[in-house]
Design a binder for these strands. Structure first.
Lengths: 156, 156
DNA sequence: CGCGATTAAATCGTGTACGATAAATATACC
DNA sequence: GGTATATTTATCGTACACGATTTAATCGCG
């Protein structure tokens, strides 16, 4: 019954019965929870993620940022331009290799870090789950993500 | 302890340490896995979700579909128009109450159901997790989603 | 019966996301 | 040293996704 799901009781499951929809709809619910808090910082959630990475690793290249966030340059370039226009960062071609564009936080960009500290804990609290359980979930999701990306590559 | 974690309890966590990013990036990885399969059906993932619901509950109103998918009419209206232009469904105002728009599958729309049956099992397989574990994860995510939406309402 | 309140869907503006492609630069190999 | 190739980012087209607003229809209540 492993291979072919055993004959044709292979009915389609409803959305609520599907793991994938759980991830999809929870992601939206998380974003909805984040939004009012991030609005105060003038950031969207993907922008907040980019800032999180840059606060730890300033001067990263666009591609390196993309590797950490699993996002393409076609997503990051306009996102970073918006952050640049807000004065949170600057983009500059590497002197050594002009193909690279490095992203440097400005003073305002670094200053925002303090105000962002309260965001994540508030979200965690709103999930109603304890940190240990969330951490287990996080590790399982990352394992799934890893397996999926590996499978995508093999079929890509 | 690579950087300066564990020092102050109010430090910002890196993206990979955050549960929310796990959901966010896993959602993208799932979509990447779905895409080639859904391309064969001429559907995007949100379109596939809408079809999943309609295959079970034909004739739903736009709002009812949105309740089940946790999506707004501003998202669904253009999505449904695209499915309509592909000849998979038709939209018609309710005779009883012309504010409602009901969505009816066409013959082609219903026929697509057979071809869609193989999609979900392939994704499940690619996660590398057994169905029972995924089911546990699914329930936990739904509980989190429920708690988040409740918290959003109270603050909204 | 009439008109304000409510409801449902559509519209509008902003911001992701991705794949495909292009453009610019750097490397490699002859 | 010059051309083929590879790498990195940017651009383009399509499709979500949401909040705010608008439009249209119905309801409620005097």
């Amino acid at each position: 019954m492993t291979e072919e799901q055993e004959s044709n009781d292979a009915e389609l499951l409803g959305v609520e019965e599907q793991f994938c929809f759980a991830v999809y709809s929870t992601s939206h619910a998380l974003n909805k929870m984040y939004k009012p808090m991030l609005d105060n910082l003038g950031l969207t959630y993907p922008q907040y993620l980019a800032m999180l990475v840059l606060w730890e690793h300033d001067g990263l290249r666009v591609g390196e940022l993309g590797q950490r966030l699993y996002l393409e340059s076609s997503t990051l370039t306009p996102l970073l331009k918006r952050l640049e226009s807000r004065g949170l960062l600057e983009r500059a071609r590497s002197p050594g290799d002009e193909r690279h564009v490095r992203v440097y936080l400005t003073e305002n960009g670094n200053a925002l870090r303090e105000r962002a500290k309260s965001v994540a804990p508030a979200i965690i609290n709103a999930t109603g789950f304890d940190p240990a359980t969330l951490d287990t979930l996080r590790r399982q999701l990352f394992q799934i993500r890893s397996n999926l990306l590996k499978a995508s590559e093999n079929r890509g």
